[in-house]
Design a protein around this nucleic acid. Sequence first.
DNA 1: GCCTACGAGATTGTCGCCAATATTGTGGTC
DNA 2: GACCACAATATTGGCGACAATCTCGTAGGC
Lengths: 226, 226
Amino acid sequence: MAANHERRPTSHGGVTDAIKEAIIRGDFVPGQRLVEADLSDMFGASRAAVRSSLLELTNEGLVEKVQNRGARVRAVSLDDAIEISEVRMMLEALCAAKAAEHIDDDGIAELESIGERMSAAVSAGDVFGYSRLNELLHRRVRELSGQRTAARVLDRLRAQSVRHQFRLATQPGRPSVSLPEHLAIIEAICARDTAAADRAARRHLASVIDALRQAEAAEASVAGAG
Amino acid sequence: MAANHERRPTSHGGVTDAIKEAIIRGDFVPGQRLVEADLSDMFGASRAAVRSSLLELTNEGLVEKVQNRGARVRAVSLDDAIEISEVRMMLEALCAAKAAEHIDDDGIAELESIGERMSAAVSAGDVFGYSRLNELLHRRVRELSGQRTAARVLDRLRAQSVRHQFRLATQPGRPSVSLPEHLAIIEAICARDTAAADRAARRHLASVIDALRQAEAAEASVAGAG
DNA sequence: GCCTACGAGATTGTCGCCAATATTGTGGTC
DNA sequence: GACCACAATATTGGCGACAATCTCGTAGGC
């Protein structure tokens, strides 16, 4: 298993999405070589299509290419993840504030529904469901903000850091820390309080960075002890 | 002049840079169609090279491609420019704060030198020189911050908005508004005052957004009167 | 006179081949 | 026994040609 990339997208966009998904899902691990001919067989596309897809994904920060030495899945270090989270802190705060400004009644109902489902998922210990709601919440806030420039950047950064994101989500005790932060963001946006939304988003991302730093420290001590 | 794109880069990177420069310099105007065969002749490269360059520049937000309908130079609207400036406000503030944290004596000397030259350029009415120093200052702050993720994003956004940037710079009276803002950023960073650097960068970008909005209003009234 | 269907030209999308470069394995020499 | 030069292989980079698609002009029909 872990490999059912046997569609026939043939064309550029399809191959790009397929490879992107495979990287995000973890079918291709960080550092793994991506040989054009192999991908070409795997997805049933021409080498040219694979080639342009690889170029596009390089621009998105998901793969790294070296002249005449091929492409590999980009390995996002913990330092990179922290940098990404710092940028996200700024931009998610911007989007949260904008969302608070522009939100309508339908949006409020939707966000509140997401909040309730998140609480339920955490109560039920449904880590995976909570993780998906987490992603949904962040995406909806980005969309509701109407700030497409920031949304595009955040999309890319999120794709780059899914692995760290997921590791954090499965960390024991993490959901009970992040849930109230998420609820605070929802509450602020639904109250149309831009300043509070900004602060809540900042606090949440600061907490993410803290958690990453702790993971870094834990890993270092394990490495030292092992 | 306005057209001496007759190098022979042949390879991908060279063509990409050449087209990018041509767009940034204004040799290709917003909305202009970019026909692959024409570019291929113009730069002496194969169509495949031009093609991959166009794809890369699409990802950078400098050109827009439509399926089977070709590529055009992206026309960045005033609304787009304001969005971009909003994102820049967040990220330049982050970089300024980080720069204030990490800066060493050499960096301080360099920034102060840039500040002095900016003052001199404004005194002398050297708009073009001031504009170049402006870009230099922002770039050095990005680099000194050590935040490569933010720096990469800012690089792209800046390339997208050069046209608006330039129009602002040539607006009469604008330098005397932006100079003290720039000097405040330099002073805060050199004093290693992260909070002040953050505020100064925010204030500067807020002023840019204001200027853009005024340009929007002025244009609307001209359009209404004409 | 206007609308629709068709066709010629232009432009992009895709593919397979060949050359250039890096990597790996082998043999020889000190 | 280890190091270096060289050749074989694997992989990427670049190019030209062909097919698919779109645009625009033209002719025919209502």
